[in-house]
Design a protein around this nucleic acid. Sequence first.
DNA 1: TGTACATCAGTGAACGCGCGTTCACTGATGTAC
DNA 2: TGTACATCAGTGAACGCGCGTTCACTGATGTAC
Lengths: 191, 191
Amino acid sequence: MRKSRSETAETRRRIVEAAAEAFRANGIHATGLADVMAAVGLSHGGFYRHFDSKDQLVAEACEAGTASVLDALAAAAGGCEGEECLRAVVDAYLSPAHRDAPAVGCPLAGMGSELVRGDENTRAAAARSVDTLVTLLAERVGNPEEEANRSWAIFALSAMVGALTLARLIADPVASAALLDEVRQRIVVAR
Amino acid sequence: MRKSRSETAETRRRIVEAAAEAFRANGIHATGLADVMAAVGLSHGGFYRHFDSKDQLVAEACEAGTASVLDALAAAAGGCEGEECLRAVVDAYLSPAHRDAPAVGCPLAGMGSELVRGDENTRAAAARSVDTLVTLLAERVGNPEEEANRSWAIFALSAMVGALTLARLIADPVASAALLDEVRQRIVVAR
DNA sequence: TGTACATCAGTGAACGCGCGTTCACTGATGTAC
DNA sequence: TGTACATCAGTGAACGCGCGTTCACTGATGTAC
């Protein structure tokens, strides 16, 4: 049953991807390893050929989820790099589409309160996710190394993560969309 | 073994309080009913004399946690009601003390991503929590019924919930405190 | 290049454990007369 | 006010179930000669 090295690497990648989706959609604790392995079409016993523990998978899933969100936001900005695309990134993050698709959305919003209680590696990965997203936002308003730009980006990311979480809590679609709209406008103005 | 009505009510209240603390500190899924009952000094079997299900307890714990945070923030404002106390409320919410005491802190930050996946009653309770905190903030900048004040308060609460979550993810105490400071200042300025 | 052997990805059963929930039981409280 | 009985808060064992993790096994892949 042994697989070739490239197949093994591909399987591992698919496990991380499936985990990243399941953790964001259903929560870390509520998602079993058997669920993740089944999503990839494997039995759960083989999990430990790829990972030491569920904690390790959580940390990697956080990284993978962040990378996918980063790609999606960069794509939404259409490849431009200046301030003119700031609105595109913020609009994409605070869209009803993002709110309604947590499985492929921001891990900080989808599993933020569970990441806080993760192990050391998980929290380190989550902290890197914060840094990555802060840099993405800072780039939209100028040099991402400049203190003022990072400072604004930290503020913007906080508001974005919080707004997405709150928007998902509010069942009324009108009120939820209104919350997203208001935060969206104020973030751009706050720059 | 039967208890008097007032004792029964008091026991029920203590279960909700203990649950509110445990859920915020350790997460909803990670906290067992036996843990909660043990914290109150009871065996787990008696739980169902007070509640229909764990879900019901989660919803009530969300409400109770919000009430306690509301009290704490009102106390931080020192009883004054005008705009001059806005800073006191925001400072209290975005303080290292709040960050380091999730058990008695804001439920939206402490268990936000788990509340999103709660049942109907839980999400309704969480949505009421959002509304309650928005009103508290709106009151600090004027008439809480006025659209402009509510709109700002929604933005402020989003930034506050997000910032507290991110601050808890960042292990480095200097970077974490810096994030809180920056968001704190910008929220007040954004008014 | 071909052969012999070591490696190891994946299977499926099993491990101990804790979960939410149920239940028979106890005995103090509440109620009806 | 006092007595007899119904109620029910709390106990502790048990229910079925799913969890993370381990393990003996299979057989294709990788490696050494």
